[in-house]
Design a protein around this nucleic acid. Structure first.
Lengths: 190, 190
DNA sequence: ACTCTAACGGAGGCACCCCTCCGCTTCAAG
DNA sequence: CTTGAAGCGGAGGGGTGCCTCCGTTAGAGT
């Protein structure tokens, strides 16, 4: 499986040493800022965090969307990688392992969640990448009679994303609630 | 059951006729704006929508929080009322009917969701009001062996709030996913 | 009708953010 | 080492939102 998403990110990275360093710092700062304030975090604040002038930010990422897409793409990339790691497990375990990783990820990545419904080309490519990575895990679980068949993978991701996105008292509560919802996914197969 | 939350809102309402009219217009405008833009909607925009000067807004609600609390409290009040309406149904039906109402409510009320973890006095009072209204429905379902006992009402509300808060392709998808998660709540009792 | 007081509204000062533009700096190729 | 081009940073203009202050308006009690 190829991940065009990763290439998109890589292709933007400048060649000169100082420029590349700034580019990385910006992406890191943006990842952090988007996690804290959602996709409309202040760009000037991001430049500040990265220890870089606002002009440098705009040169690397002419629009807010460019920056956002780059962060998003690299996040999705990571999730695709994880899908390969868990593929060796039993069907249901593989699925839930990946979903839990997806969930743990979403907790800090409000940005990913907000982009879940974006129609633009890059976001669509990212989603397809992610579906291609996680979808087979779900279909395998369905084929094994472990997951209900009256829902699709997109339904499932939305459910997990929603639960993960809300604020909980602690991680234990979040895990408990997620487990209950996943029981619902498994329920009719029993 | 009393609803102190309702009194809080009522007690703020001015006596003079024009003032009372403005107060109501502000509350309506704020409800709308908070639904659209979340709890940090522009106050000047709210005043504009209400057809009222910004000064009037600040006289009635000295801080953003005051305004937000008033809207929130009146929303919660409505949910408490609904809880009484459904009390006559069978345990599981009563619970899900209320939760679906809660869910349909949350879809448009981003504000309510954002306040779900606020620690301040009024928000706490509102939550207690809401728990007092909906909690018994859940406990009744548990007692009837219809709902699993290894979770509490707060867990349940968080779950529903989370699922409801995410963007779905359409209402049908949202309902489907919510139903699946609720199957998980019922699961162990079977 | 009269009055006086509560209520009104928006101008204006401050802060923050967006984005462009351009003189200065630094890399790396030769 | 030299040098030109790529990269840098931040000043500044425009926009929006927050909140205060005060001259003006209109309700309610007599």
């Amino acid at each position: 499986m190829t991940f065009p998403v990763g290439e998109i990110v890589a292709s933007r990275r400048p060649h000169r040493k100082d420029a590349a360093r700034n580019y990385d710092a910006l992406l890191d700062a943006a990842r952090e800022a988007f996690a804290e304030h959602g996709s409309d975090a202040s760009l000037e604040d991001i430049a500040r965090r990265a220890g870089v002038g606002i002009g440098t930010l705009y040169r690397n990422f002419p629009t807010r969307r460019d920056l956002f897409e780059s962060v998003y793409a690299s996040d999705v990339n990571e999730l695709c990688r994880v899908a390969q790691e868990v593929a060796a497990l039993e069907p249901w375990e593989a699925l839930t392992a990946w979903l839990r990783r997806f969930a743990g990820y979403m907790v800090t990545k409000r940005a990913v969640r907000e982009a879940l419904n974006d129609e633009s080309e890059i976001f669509q490519a990212c989603r397809e990448s992610m579906y291609a990575a996680g979808g087979p895990l779900f279909e395998r679980a369905q084929a094994a009679g472990e997951a209900r068949k009256d829902m699709d993978f997109v339904d499932l991701l939305r459910m997990v994303a929603g639960i993960t996105a809300t604020a909980f008292d602690d991680d234990a509560q979040r895990d408990r609630v997620l487990a209950i919802a996943l029981d619902g996914v498994r329920t009719t197969a029993r």
